[in-house]
């Protein structure tokens, strides 16, 4: 592999097939797990469990399938910045909508006035 890599100018990292298979297996197990988790009623925790499992799956895809672990770190910086901005966007909008809307429009958000 090292010999092959030295041929090309970009010196790519070839992910071993064993790693790819392991990631695929983990993704399948996580999918079954996230379906099984909905059968258990944990109240608001269900959402966090589902999102946590989804984030674990996305991380596996990013790190191994998309080579982010072996890449130049700047690519990860670009991607994580986009995620951060989406997080800022959604959280600020949520803060805003829970701040005014329930009082402004009657019946708009009955859940928030409880």
């Amino acid at each position: 592999m090292n010999e092959k890599a030295s041929h090309s100018a970009a010196r790519p990292h070839v992910v071993p097939l064993r790693v790819l298979l392991a990631v695929w297996g983990a993704l399948m197990v996580f999918t079954a797990l996230t379906v099984a988790a909905t059968e258990v009623d944990l109240g608001a925790f269900n959402l966090f469990i589902a999102l946590g499992i989804a984030t674990a799956k996305a991380s596996l895809v990013l790190l191994y399938f998309m080579h982010l672990r072996y890449d130049k770190p700047f690519n990860a910086v670009v991607f994580i910045c986009a995620l951060l901005f989406v997080a800022i966007f959604i959280s600020l909008v949520l803060v805003d909508t829970t701040q005014y809307q329930p009082e402004l429009i009657p019946g708009y958000a009955p859940e928030l006035l409880k």
């Binding site: 986009a82 989406v86 909008v93």
Partner: peptide, 29 residues
């Protein structure tokens, strides 16, 4: 590759708008 990652970042922002709509409606209703 960097160019592709920047493009993927814009894709995340594109879907981010829809995920935001989802979050607002789910939080309120």
């Amino acid at each position: 590759r960097l160019g592709m990652w920047v493009f993927l970042a814009t894709e995340i922002l594109l879907f981010g708008g829809l995920f935001c709509a989802y979050s607002v409606y789910r939080a309120n209703h």
